[in-house]
């Protein structure tokens, strides 16, 4: 699969402070989470991609083309949802979206029609004639998303799109992102809310102090984690422990008298039960152990520091 977006040794300086340090990644999936604590460089990375903060070194490739050669043509293909403000008071929702549509290259009449469509799509159809300063935080975020979609971009950059939203609004925003991904748009979701990434992203880039600490596909990672089980053994624990170890299974004693078992490739739960069946004792409880993204994130941060 062709990479939609790549970063190659991108560094950004703010004065003497290095905000991004030789960031390199490839994005081929269409829902990518950019995860990191505050000040990790997520917003800088997005701005560097849009050339709002030109990289001091390195470059981005969008569908194989160097973005510095594309200029305005690149920004026609990108929709950007900024984190802070970014709305003009005194304008109506539909007026603002249509106006940005025009700046992005749509003729006036189609821009107005398109503004109505995208506002309907994000669920602001009924409040489109209200002035933007009267919108709630959630509505403003949706309005920004509508503005980012008005020119039908291929790549949508969302900078903390769910910040300050209530749970219902947050879910609706995530649903919209997921739906856009289904439409073939590439979504780059920058956030520090792990659950948002967990809910919709298929690829995660963990950023810390301007560096990429980890780059993983959630599906791959989930699959490998799905082989971890916690076993409560009714009988002598060492018996099962040694039996599993002798057969080459990964096994560790855990808290509360449990055993953490890693099923080897090619083996399954059936094999675990048949192995245990030959011993003096029974499996009392079996818990499928899943590592949360939070654990992976914290692990990556610990490694990074």
């Amino acid at each position: 699969m062709q990479n939609v977006l790549s970063a190659q040794d991108v560094s950004v300086y703010y004065g003497k402070t290095k905000a991004l340090k030789e960031v390199t990644f490839d994005i081929s999936d269409n829902t990518v989470g950019l995860l990191g604590p505050n000040g990790a460089g997520k917003t800088t990375l997005i701005k560097a991609l849009l050339n709002l903060v030109p990289p001091s070194s390195g470059h981005f490739l969008f569908k194989g083309e160097n973005t510095s050669n594309l200029g305005a043509a690149l920004r026609e293909k990108i929709g950007y949802v900024p984190e802070k403000e970014g709305l003009r008071s005194g304008m109506t929702g539909v007026g603002w979206v249509a106006f940005l549509g025009e700046i992005s290259g749509l003729p006036r009449r189609p821009a107005i029609e398109r503004a109505h469509d995208v506002l309907q799509y994000v669920g602001l159809g009924e409040s489109r004639y209200r002035e933007v300063q009267t919108y709630s935080t959630g509505m403003q975020q949706r309005l920004k998303l509508a503005a980012a979609l008005v020119h039908d971009p291929e790549l949508v950059l969302l900078d903390e799109p769910t910040a300050g939203m209530d749970p219902g609004g947050r879910q609706e925003m995530l649903d919209l992102c997921q739906d856009l991904a289904k439409q073939g748009k590439t979504i780059l979701l920058s956030t520090h809310i792990l659950k948002d990434v967990e809910a919709i992203c298929t690829q995660v880039i963990i950023l810390h102090q301007g560096e990429v600490l980890s780059h993983l596909g959630i599906e791959d990672w989930s699959r490998s984690e799905s082989r971890h089980y916690l076993v409560q053994w009714h009988g002598e624990r060492e018996l099962l422990f040694h039996a599993l170890e002798d057969h080459g299974w990964g096994v560790n004693p855990s808290e509360n008298g449990l055993l953490r078992v890693v099923i080897p490739p090619g083996k399954g739960l059936k094999d675990l039960f048949s192995l245990a069946g030959g011993l003096d004792g029974t499996i009392h409880r079996l818990v499928h152990e899943r590592t949360t993204l939070e654990e992976v994130f914290l692990q990556a941060l610990r490694k990074g520091t």
């Binding site: 709002l52 920004r75 026609e76 900024p82 403000e85 709305l87 290259g105 020119h151």
Partner: peptide, 12 residues
């Protein structure tokens, strides 16, 4: 109002 980055983030 931070609209400048919205304008410059477009094909302008």
């Amino acid at each position: 109002e931070r609209t400048m980055e919205v304008f410059l983030g477009r094909a302008l």
